[in-house]
Design a protein around this nucleic acid. Structure first.
Lengths: 223, 223
DNA sequence: AACATCAGTGAACCGAAATTCATTTCTTTG
DNA sequence: CAAAGAAATGAATTTCGGTTCACTGATGTT
């Protein structure tokens, strides 16, 4: 017996893996999928190209992991909101508005995750992501239906998909590279984002809300 | 002077061009973008690969033309509905439902046009398409606002984008290759499509409608 | 018919980026 | 320290499909 992995090495390997993931995420969030090349990732992580393949079987799996890690954070945030207390429509409003606001904090990354054309394999992970978000929204709608806040004729799965598609598409305009020449760190910009988030969330809520009364209640106390 | 194009040749050229476009469209609608290769198009059109380049400067431009031709038909249909008479919400409902129903008539093609990952260059044309559809929807919403059918606080551009994203995403589930194992030509299937179309259209209408009364009126006479 | 020009051909070319692998360098153990 | 195994390297290979172009065959003009 001549070699066994020591903790020190194990730690270094794990660290390398993290660095690769971090480098990959950074590249995507700076230059989109075009910059997301294996060689570039390796360079950014300070290792050789071939080394990437000791940690990930393929480019697609590497980036699928990046995508799912980032997505998981968003899904977690939404899940928290979904399972918080209060009226369902309030949670729906909050979920949508929060998603929009968070996306606008890192537009380049959000654009890549939501809309930018990319490899088929990576795109699969994206579909899974959307489906998961959709599930969370569906759960809110279902609880809303139980509480009579949501019309009974609404099919929760369809409505959830439509709402998710709606707010993601609503984001594409503001997110798309042309619009993002510069997104200044000003109050005016923040206000604009907040308004957009509110507008989109309001549309989502209205589309399923049972009565005008329920909505009025919501507007009195916007989440 | 030694050569000038005669009508016969002109006709043949034009015919070739059409055949290329038709072959390209057929390939996409059968196998999606994966099958949409220049060599395959040439083969399907019964000509040599290089000949394609006598009619189109690049693959991207060829398929952009395919996409825009197909899209134009849809936009025309929507425009007709938009400029027909009647209440704006009725037109909105009709526009959305019609789009969904038509898409489900050729799911593979619709999927490719709406959601399937594809080359950047082709994707640009797709964005233009979405933007155009969005414009039509926006015009309906604006006229609805003028007629007090649509809430005044709705921003027509945002709402239009959200609605378009919503119904397109609402289609992706039903359209995505897995779901389309077979779409039988049965009454049950047609009923299901009609219901989906109606559900999605209803969500779109509700999201912007001014009052429950307006909606009730709509439900009495579903477009 | 002879010439000029155009249309069609398809095998070869090319670029780009993922992936591989023979070699080198580092770690561990006896 | 030497042997054995693991990890890292990065230049070379592979792949893949779009694009080119030298050539052949058609078509029109004189």
């Amino acid at each position: 017996m001549a070699y066994r992995q020591t903790p020190a090495v194990e730690a270094r390997l794990h660290d390398n893996r993290s660095r690769i993931l971090l480098a990959a995420r950074t590249l995507v969030s700076e230059g989109g999928w075009a910059e997301a090349q294996v060689a570039a990732v390796a360079a950014a992580a300070g290792i050789a190209t071939g080394t990437v393949y000791r940690y990930f079987p393929s480019k697609a799996e590497l980036f699928a992991e990046v995508l799912s890690a980032v997505s998981q954070r968003e899904v977690d945030v939404l899940t928290d909101i979904a399972s918080s207390g209060g009226p369902a429509l309030g949670r729906l409003h909050s979920a949508v508005a929060t998603f929009v606001r968070r996306a606008m904090r890192n537009p380049r990354l959000a654009y890549a995750l939501i809309a930018e054309p990319c490899d088929k394999e990576i795109d699969e992970a994206r579909l899974t992501y959307r489906a998961t978000v959709s599930e969370v929204i569906r759960s809110i709608i279902e609880s809303g239906q139980a509480a009579k806040e949501v019309r009974p004729d609404v099919r929760p799965d369809v409505a959830a998909t439509v709402i998710v598609g709606g707010f993601m598409e609503g984001l594409i305009g503001p997110l798309s590279p042309l619009s993002r020449q510069q997104h200044p760190d000003t109050d005016a910009y923040r206000r604009e984002v907040a308004q957009l988030a509110d507008q989109i969330a309001a549309l989502a809520c209205t589309s399923v809300a049972a009565t005008a009364a329920t909505l009025r209640q919501l507007n009195r106390r916007p989440a």
